[in-house]
Design a binder for these strands. Structure first.
Length: 576
DNA sequence: GCCGTTTTCGGCCCGACTGTTTTCAGTCG
C-alpha cells in the first residue's frame, strides 16, 4: 500500500470534524478532532514511525480512539467510521460550509428544507429568492450567501508572509497617524510570522474608536467592506487580501494586541491557566473572577506575569510546547536577526541574478554583514545561465581580486551546484574543492519517485565538498508541493555526514519550514539561513528566514551563519 | 473525544457582528 502522509491524515481528521459538525454532534467531540488534525499537521515525525514505536498517544490531542483510527488508516488505507460518516452526510455540504458566512447549521437547514447539496444549487436558490422563504432567513441572507460564493471563487485566500507583512506595514503606517491614535500594530499570524497568512489582523489603541473604523473602511485600497461595528471592521483589499481591524482604548491596547496575535490555541491555553488562578483574560484586559476588578497591563509581558510565566515571543505562540517550557523555565534563547553575520546563498549577474558582485557587496556592507558568499548556478542549469567551468574559474579569480581591494566584508567564492537527475553533482570534485562554499540543490526531476529523489539528495550530502543543501523540500508556498522526499532519511544523513541544511528565506519558499527546522535542530543538525537573493532588494528577506528559525526554536548556536568569520572558515573547511 | 500537581468523571475560553428577531442563534476569529 502507498505511504500515507501526515498531512493527509490531518486532512481526514479535519473532515471528520466537519462531518460531525454537519451531523450536529457535540462541540467537544468536534473540537477534539480539530485539535488532533492540527497536532498531526504540526508533527515533524511520520505517524507511521510513531505507530511502530507505539507512541501515537503521546502526541497531545491524540487519545485512544483517534490513535486507533490512525492505525486503521495506515494499515488498511481507510477508516470505517469516516466512510460511514461520508455516506450519512451529502458530500456537497462539506463544500458549502467553506463559503464564508455559511456554517453547518445553515447548510443542514438548506439541505433538509430545500434539498440543496452543492454550491451551484445554493447559488441558484439564492438568486431565485428561495432562501428567504425559510424561517430565520431573509433577503440579506441571500445576498451574503452570493457574496460568500463570489469570495470563495475569486480566491480571497491565503497569501504569502512577504505580501502580508508589507501590506500590514503600510496599513499600520496609515492608521498610526490618524487623530486620537496612540498605538497601532499588526497582530495575528503576520506577527507570529507564519509561513502563509489567511487574513491580516491589525490592532489600534485610540481615544476615538469609531472615527478610526470609519476612516479605515474608506481607505483607497479597500475593495469591499465585509462587516463594520463599533470596535471591529473587516475589509478586502484590491489585491484580495482580507484585513480585520480591532480598535480599543489605549489602555486596552496590549491586551487586544495579545488577543489578536494568538494563536487561538495558545490563547485558549492561557485562558485555561487564568481560569485556574481565579483570573479571566480577554481582549480588554486581565480580570479577577471574584469582583471583576482589572489587573494592570502595560505591555504583553504583564499578561504572562499575571499567570506566573515569563514573556513568550509571538513566533512561539502556537501551543507547541512553549507554555510548558515557560512553566519550567526552559524557553529557548532565540536567535535574533542581528545575530546573522552573513548570507551564504546569493546570485549575481554572472548567472541569473540582476546585480553585480560589487552591488551585492555594497548591500551586504550596508546591512552590516561580515561575510557573504556568491553562489551562482552551475553549468547544467542553462535557463539560469549556469556557469561553465571556465567562467567559474574566472569568477573565483575575480572574487579573489575583489577581496584584495575590499576591507571589512569578506566575499566568499561559492557555488550552487545542481544535483543532477541521476544523483551526480554538476561539477567534478576538483572544481568543487576550489570553492569556499558549496551549496547543492535539486532543480530538475521534481517528479521522481521518493526513493530516487531522496537518494539524489543523500548522495550529494555524502560528497565531502558539499557544505549545505539548499531548499531541501522544493516546495513553493501555495504553488508547488514539496517533492516526494523522505525527510527522516535526509535528517539522518545530515547527522551522519555533518551537512548543514538551509532555511531559504524567500517568502515563496521558507524551506525548511518551522517544524522541520525544529526537528533538525533537535537532532543536532546545523542550519544555515540564506536569502537565495537574485536581486539585492531581496537580501532583506533574511528576516523571514530568521523568523522561521525562531518558530523552529533555534538558538544562535544552531545556526552556521551566526559564526564569526574565522570560525565559519573552520566549519566549512571541516567539510573541505 | 481528550485529559488530570484540585479530577479516571465531568469538565472542556471568550467576545463581536449580523440578520432576523423582540431576546438570540449562528458564524467567525
Amino acid at each position: 500500500m502507498r505511504r500515507i502522509e501526515n498531512i493527509e491524515v490531518a486532512w481526514i481528521m479535519s473532515e471528520i470534524a466537519d462531518l460531525l459538525e454537519l451531523k450536529g454532534e457535540t462541540v467537544f467531540k468536534i473540537r477534539a478532532y480539530r485539535k488532533a488534525a492540527k497536532a498531526i499537521a504540526n508533527l515533524a515525525t511520520d505517524l507511521a514511525v510513531l505507530l511502530v514505536e507505539k507512541q501515537l498517544e503521546t502526541v497531545p490531542g491524540i487519545g485512544k480512539a483517534i490513535a486507533a483510527k490512525i492505525e486503521e488508516l495506515l494499515k488498511t488505507g481507510t477508516i470505517n467510521y469516516y466512510e460511514n460518516l461520508k455516506s450519512e452526510v451529502p458530500f456537497g455540504l462539506l463544500e458549502i460550509i467553506t463559503i464564508p458566512g455559511v456554517g453547518p447549521k445553515m447548510a443542514q437547514e438548506l439541505y433538509q428544507k430545500l434539498k440543496i447539496s452543492s454550491v451551484d444549487e445554493l447559488e441558484a436558490a439564492a438568486k431565485g429568492r428561495k432562501i428567504r422563504e425559510l424561517p430565520g432567513m431573509g433577503g440579506k441572507t441571500e445576498m451574503n450567501i452570493l457574496r460568500g460564493i463570489e469570495m470563495l471563487r475569486s480566491g480571497v485566500g491565503r497569501t504569502t508572509l512577504g505580501i502580508a507583512d508589507a501590506l500590514a506595514e503600510a496599513f499600520v503606517g496609515f492608521l498610526r497617524v490618524l487623530p486620537g491614535v496612540e498605538y497601532a500594530g499588526a497582530a495575528g499570524s503576520t506577527r507570529r510570522m507564519q509561513e502563509s497568512i489567511g487574513d491580516i489582523d491589525l490592532v489600534v489603541g485610540a481615544t476615538e474608536t469609531e472615527k478610526v473604523i470609519d476612516i479605515f473602511v474608506r481607505h483607497p485600497q479597500v475593495k469591499r467592506v465585509l462587516n463594520q461595528g463599533d470596535t471591529k471592521a473587516s475589509i478586502v483589499t484590491l489585491m484580495g487580501v482580507q484585513i480585520d481591524l480591532m480598535v480599543v482604548s489605549p489602555e486596552q491596547y496590549w491586551s487586544a494586541l495579545h488577543h489578536f496575535t494568538g494563536s487561538k490555541e495558545h490563547n485558549v491555553r492561557l485562558r485555561e491557566l487564568a481560569h485556574k488562578k481565579g483570573l479571566k483574560i480577554n481582549e480588554y484586559g486581565v480580570f479577577s473572577r471574584d469582583d471583576d476588578s482589572s489587573l494592570p497591563v502595560s505591555g504583553e509581558a504583564d499578561i504572562y506575569a499575571h499567570l506566573g510565566l515569563p514573556y513568550i515571543v509571538p513566533e512561539l505562540r502556537e501551543d507547541l510546547g512553549e507554555i510548558e517550557a515557560a512553566q519550567e523555565g526552559k524557553l529557548p534563547e532565540l536567535l535574533e536577526l542581528a545575530d546573522i553575520k552573513g548570507d551564504l546563498h546569493i546570485h549575481s549577474d554572472w548567472s541569473d541574478g540582476v546585480n553585480t558582485i560589487e552591488q551585492i557587496a555594497g548591500k551586504a556592507a550596508e546591512i552590516g554583514y561580515e561575510y557573504i558568499a556568491i553562489t551562482d548556478h552551475s553549468k547544467s542549469l542553462g535557463i539560469a545561465r549556469g556557469l561553465s567551468v571556465e567562467r567559474l574559474t574566472m569568477q573565483n579569480e575575480y572574487i579573489r581580486e575583489m577581496n584584495e581591494r575590499t576591507t571589512g566584508l569578506e566575499i566568499m567564492s561559492g557555488i550552487e551546484v545542481d544535483i543532477l537527475a541521476n544523483g551526480d553533482l554538476d561539477y567534478p570534485d576538483e572544481i568543487l574543492a576550489e570553492k569556499d562554499v558549496v551549496i547543492a540543490s535539486v532543480h530538475s526531476g521534481f517528479r521522481q519517485e521518493e526513493a530516487k529523489l531522496t537518494g539524489r539528495v543523500i548522495s550529494a550530502m555524502k560528497n565531502e565538498h558539499v557544505d549545505i543543501i539548499a531548499h531541501t523540500t522544493g516546495r513553493l508556498i501555495g504553488r508547488r508541493d514539496a517533492y516526494a522526499i523522505n525527510m527522516e532519511a535526509v535528517f539522518e544523513a545530515a547527522v551522519k555526514y555533518g551537512t548543514a541544511l538551509e532555511i531559504n528565506s524567500s517568502p515563496d519558499r521558507l524551506d525548511l519550514n518551522d517544524k522541520y527546522v525544529r526537528k533538525a535542530a533537535e537532532m543536532g543538525i546545523k542550519i544555515c539561513i540564506n536569502t537565495d537573493a537574485h536581486d539585492i532588494a531581496r537580501m532583506d528577506e533574511m528576516r523571514y528566514g530568521t523568523a522561521m528559525a525562531r518558530r523552529g526554536w533555534l538558538s544562535r548556536e544552531d545556526v552556521v551563519n551566526t559564526m564569526e568569520k574565522d570560525r565559519l572558515r573552520r566549519f566549512l573547511a571541516q567539510r573541505n
